[in-house]
């Protein structure tokens, strides 16, 4: 049926075009959702497959065609994985390294950033640029001298090489924190100074409490990077019992005949702390990345 548009009243025409627009929008949304859901499924497939495998019986691993969702999920696999591999031990080691690095970053970064953000002194710009340029230096260049240094000091196979650097501030965090502190109005410092606060009182009572968003970014990134770090632990640690989870997982491969159902369970367990931190802190994480991307 064709309707001559000229016969319709103006208000009817308006209503129609509004309805059409709404319908078009709805179809558009449906298409977008379909595309996004399809993409998300593709992206999540490796993780889904890991989870699915971790619940299978050994004989189901090689089954053809494979079972996508195990009909008889073996939750006991997880207990077996924890019993067979020193998984809990490795996760605790990682947790300790994470905690020690977070403490280090929180102690050093705000103080250093405070110096850059609030005080003037000769060569400040040179020092700031020097610090920024260290962000560009790939870590591998430092490994041999540091390894030899730690060897001479008897620190190989201890956690010190993996902890100490955090206590001297990482350039990336210092930069982030300095930029953040610069946005805090100096009038607050002045008011506190009139009330008799010294420079350190101002830092700890006025500035640090206002820096919570930036501090959260520091904590979250330190967590992720320390938990995921691989190259430095394999160089500085030797004792199997001292491995963090990343190295531990990689070594399960070589040491045990691979039982993939247990192994995938262990891998899944190893990323759970990361996922938890990520879900709770994603706003800060993304905000932090964005701040760097835009200012950097």
């Amino acid at each position: 049926m064709r309707i001559d548009p000229a016969r319709l009243s103006a208000s009817e025409q308006l209503r129609r075009s509004a309805r059409q627009r709404r319908a078009r929008k709805l179809v558009g949304h449906a298409i977008i959702y379909a595309v996004m859901i399809a993409l998300a499924c593709v992206f999540m497939l490796p993780i889904f497959w890991m989870a699915s495998t971790s619940l299978k019986l050994p004989r189901e691993l090689m089954a053809w065609p494979p079972e996508w969702i195990p009909s008889n999920p073996q939750w006991g696999n997880y207990a077996e994985a924890f019993g067979k591999y020193p998984l809990a031990r490795y996760m605790l080691n990682s947790a300790f390294l994470v905690a020690a690095n977070i403490v280090g970053a929180l102690l050093s970064v705000p103080v250093i950033a405070y110096g850059f953000a609030r005080f003037n002194f000769p060569f400040k710009n040179v020092l700031f640029i020097l610090m920024l340029s260290m962000m560009m230096v790939p870590g591998h260049i430092k490994l041999i001298p540091l390894y030899v240094l730690y060897l001479r000091l008897g620190l190989i196979d201890t956690y010190w090489p993996l902890i100490l650097p955090a206590y001297f501030g990482s350039p990336f965090f210092i930069f982030l924190m300095t930029q953040f502190m610069r946005t805090i109005p100096r009038e607050l410092d002045d008011a506190a100074r009139i009330d008799g606060a010294g420079p350190w009182g101002i830092l700890y009572r006025i500035i640090i409490p206002l820096c919570r968003p930036a501090l959260t970014v520091v904590v979250v990134f330190t967590f992720l990077w320390t938990w995921n770090d691989f190259l430095e632990p394999i160089i500085f640690l030797r004792d199997y019992d001292s491995f963090p989870i990343s190295v531990g997982l990689a070594f399960f491969q070589g040491r045990y005949s691979i039982e993939w159902h247990l192994f995938m369970g262990a891998t899944l367990v190893s990323i759970i702390p990361i996922l938890v931190v990520y879900f709770f802190a994603q706003r800060h994480l993304i905000g932090g990345l964005a701040a760097i991307g835009i200012k950097g």
């Binding site: 993409l39 998300a40 992206f43 999540m44 497939l45 490796p46 993780i47 497959w49 890991m50 495998t53 992720l224 938990w227 995921n228 691989f230 990343s246 190295v247 997982l249 990689a250 491969q253 993939w260 192994f263 995938m264 891998t267 190893s270 990323i271 990361i274 996922l275 990520y278 879900f279 994603q282 994480l285 993304i286």
Partner: peptide, 21 residues
């Protein structure tokens, strides 16, 4: 949230997952 997940998990976990995948 979903698309960002692969970027936050460790290289080792990703590697092991993909060996099997």
């Amino acid at each position: 949230t979903i698309f960002f997940i692969p970027a936050v998990i460790s290289g080792v976990a990703v590697s092991l997952m993909w060996i099997w995948f």
